[in-house]
Design a protein around this nucleic acid. Structure first.
Lengths: 171, 171
DNA sequence: AAAGATTGACTCTTCAATCTTC
DNA sequence: GAAGATTGAAGAGTCAATCTTT
C-alpha cells in the first residue's frame, strides 16, 4: 500500500512525516550504532570508541603521528576535547606527545608500540560490528550512494565552526 | 576519473576506503548537523536542540503528554537522562510533571502553555535549518531511500539496550 | 596580533544504587 | 521480585580564558 499523502493543511513550519522520519532516523541510527560499537569495544578490549577512532587516525597517518588540530578536524571534537582525549590515551600508554621541531607551538600525538597493538587487536571487533550492524544491511550500490550523499551534505564542520566563532568574537 | 581500486593486500580486518568514508560520513554528518541546529536554536530562542526534541515529542503526543519511559525510547537518552532533561524544562516552565492516575509509579511530562509557545516559535528556525542544511541537498527520491535505509539498519536501541543490561545483570 | 595547545569551570549524560508502587 | 522513576558520583566534552610561540 502507498503511504498516505501529507494533509494539505499541515502548517508550513512543520516537517512532513517523511522529513521527520529521515531526521530522527539519522539521529537514532548514528547514535545507536555508536553506542553498540562502543559497548562492544569496551567489553572486548576496554577501549572506548572515541579512543579507537583517534588511534585509527594515527594508524593511518604518515609516521603514525598527527598534530592536535589535525586530529580535531578528523574526529568530531573541539581542540580542548582532543587535548583531554590524548591525555587519557597518554595515561594509558597508547599515545605519546611529541613537540613539533618545525613549529614550537605545535604538538604531535604519536602512536606508541602498545597503542599500535591495541588498535590492531580492536580493529577486528570494530570492523566485524560495523559490517554486522550496518554495512551488511546495505543493498547493492548503496554504499556509493551514501558516500555521494555525505559529500553533498558536508557542512565542513571544522572550518564552519571556526568561522562562526570568529564572527561571533568580532561582533 | 574512476577511483583507484582497493589494494589487494589490504588486510581483512580493516575497512575498505568506501566503508570507512561511509562510516565517518555518518558520524560527521549527524554530529555537525546536530551542532549547527543546536547553535541556531540556542542563538535564536535560547533553546537547546535536546530540549526542542523533547518538546516536539510532547507536541505530537495525545493531550501533549508522554510518560518518562516513552520519552526515553523516542529520544536518544536513558531514563535518567530524561529525568534530568525534564528537570531543566520544568525549571524553565516549559513542561510540568503529572502523576499517572492509572499507575502510581508512572509520571507524565506535559507541555505547559509556555512550552507550547516556545516550541511553536522555535519550530520555524529548526525546520528552516534542517531544510537548508540537509533536505535541500537531497536528490529526487532520496528522502524515501533514506527512510528505507533507516528501517533496514534499525537496531531498536531501547529494546536492545534494556536487553543487554538485563543479560549482563543475570551473568 | 594570530595560531596552537592547554586549563578551570561548567554542562550534560551515564551507571549503579535507591525508593516507591505494582 | 519487577517496573517506573529518581539520585549521587563520576565521565566526557565544551566554552572562555590563558600561555607560548610565531
Amino acid at each position: 500500500v502507498a503511504t498516505a499523502p501529507q494533509p494539505d493543511f499541515r502548517r508550513n513550519e512543520l516537517l512532513t512525516r517523511d522529513e521527520r522520519a529521515a531526521w530522527v532516523g539519522l539521529l537514532q541510527t548514528s547514535a545507536s550504532l555508536v553506542r553498540r560499537l562502543d559497548d562492544e569495544l569496551r567489553q572486548a578490549h576496554g577501549l572506548p570508541l572515541s579512543s579507537f577512532e583517534l588511534l585509527a587516525q594515527l594508524y593511518r597517518a604518515p609516521d603514525y603521528r598527527l598534530r592536535m588540530a589535525e586530529l580535531a578536524e578528523h574526529l568530531v571534537l573541539t581542540r580542548s576535547g582532543v587535548t583531554r582525549l590524548v591525555d587519557r590515551l597518554v595515561r594509558g600508554g597508547l599515545v605519546r606527545r611529541l613537540d613539533a621541531d618545525c613549529d614550537g607551538r605545535g604538538v604531535y600525538a604519536e602512536l606508541t608500540r602498545r597503542g599500535f597493538e591495541a588498535f590492531d587487536e580492536a580493529a577486528a571487533t570494530h570492523v566485524d560490528g560495523l559490517r554486522r550492524l550496518f554495512f551488511g544491511r546495505l543493498g547493492v550500490g548503496e554504499l556509493e550512494r551514501l558516500n555521494d550523499l555525505w559529500d553533498r551534505t558536508d557542512l565542513d564542520p571544522a572550518r564552519a565552526r571556526e568561522q562562526r566563532l570568529r564572527e561571533a568574537r568580532e561582533s
